[in-house]
Design a binder for these strands. Sequence first.
DNA 1: CGAGGGTTTGAAGTGCATCAAATAGTGTGG
DNA 2: CCACACTATTTGATGCACTTCAAACCCTCG
Lengths: 254, 254
Amino acid sequence: MMTSSPSNSTKASVISALKACSLFSGLPDAALSHFAEKSHRLEAEKGKVLFIYGEEAQWFYLVCSGWVKLFRETIDGTEAVIDVVSDGSLFGESAIFLHDRYSYSAEVVEDTRLIALPTSLLRYYLDKNPQLPMNMLSHAFARQESQTLEIEHLNTQKASHRIGCFLLRLCPKGSQEAVTLNLPYDKTLIAARLGMKPETFSRALAKLKSDTQLQINGASVTIANVSQLAEYTCSQCSSSFPCEEAPQQITSNY
Amino acid sequence: MMTSSPSNSTKASVISALKACSLFSGLPDAALSHFAEKSHRLEAEKGKVLFIYGEEAQWFYLVCSGWVKLFRETIDGTEAVIDVVSDGSLFGESAIFLHDRYSYSAEVVEDTRLIALPTSLLRYYLDKNPQLPMNMLSHAFARQESQTLEIEHLNTQKASHRIGCFLLRLCPKGSQEAVTLNLPYDKTLIAARLGMKPETFSRALAKLKSDTQLQINGASVTIANVSQLAEYTCSQCSSSFPCEEAPQQITSNY
DNA sequence: CGAGGGTTTGAAGTGCATCAAATAGTGTGG
DNA sequence: CCACACTATTTGATGCACTTCAAACCCTCG
């Protein structure tokens, strides 16, 4: 693990990273500076375990680059992936409302740069600064929303549709025509993230390839027609593409 | 729909209902009184739709008694049940962080008494009273926690284990030996709530009956040995029974 | 080149869904 | 109180999706 204590230059860079994160928007510079002072940067490579379920939480994390897997495991070793997060994402902060224990484990899955921030300071400013709780609420409800969608998908969609949805979320916003992108991490992990086995992922991806105009070459995926894929995928979902947006006003049938 | 404008007596009863809800704990009496003033009580019977996905949200609800299904549906009519809530539960409040639109539909599934509260007032007091955002955060993270568990279960557990978990949650806290309880709503709905078909529910319940000491008579279920059922069910889960509690401190393996 | 992880493919099994029909349960009007 | 209609639940038979186990393939990297 490489840790650097905040020199002046890294402190400034931490502050700018915090400013880019909606959780901290509207906070006074003094508070940001205080966070930066007590933070440390962290570079971790694939395989590094940041914390495990049930551990006492002293730090929460902001991802600068790379990918981190959030997961739980049962006694028999079965693993359930909660989420896989990257730049701009925050994790571990929920512990302060859950008896100061992490409620999932976190493992780096692609070399990652992080900022670790003390939960004590978060608690302090939640109390002191009225903007911070509101930011955190937005954040919590946004996450709740995406978890709700996750539950819906697990309940109602088949493997190939879930993969389609995953690919669509990787597309740059507003994509219409052809897009080429690289899968951000192992196919095995994507499979776990989507709640299926690697073999199923492989086969379902092949089906998706034949059902929509998709080209696959290792980790590189070319979507010939984004709208067509969206049609195929999102017809199975309560949200319409692009699903990050708010639900539309609907006229009641009742 | 039976609506009553808040007379003095109902206003007092609304205030006491609000006081029992953790979201409102620590709020000054004036604020509670203000909420009560602008609220209305509602009695709705089975089948009543309170609101639908995408509608503009003006009210959020506190359940006094009965059961309400929160769900979404896709274009082809498939329904995904998000949750089924009862006394003391709050729903619809998340809309104020989601463009003022409900992000799910709500339908009464057992005759229900509710208090409807204006979202505008919630927003007002979130801004005005520093305690309310903190309460709402606790609430949001607790819900996130249970949704995470839901995702874990959908990913890793078989139908009979999910039913076992459902039954355990219905047991009074601290139950050890035999418990008899009534299923709170239709088996068909329990099935949907657990992400399975009624037929599967029926068969998986029969399996559970033969695997653990369970007696079933219509809606009445007798668990001969709660610990045994917990053993059977919770061995498949990252949490140990009773799973409402905080995760235990765990010594790292890494 | 060879080792080792990630990925694909094949064959067989399991769990859940689906379709269809029987049964049990509930509320209604006579 | 009974017959009927209607709904909830169970049961059976069959099919499909996903998993499991096993082996092959591929790719990277020492």
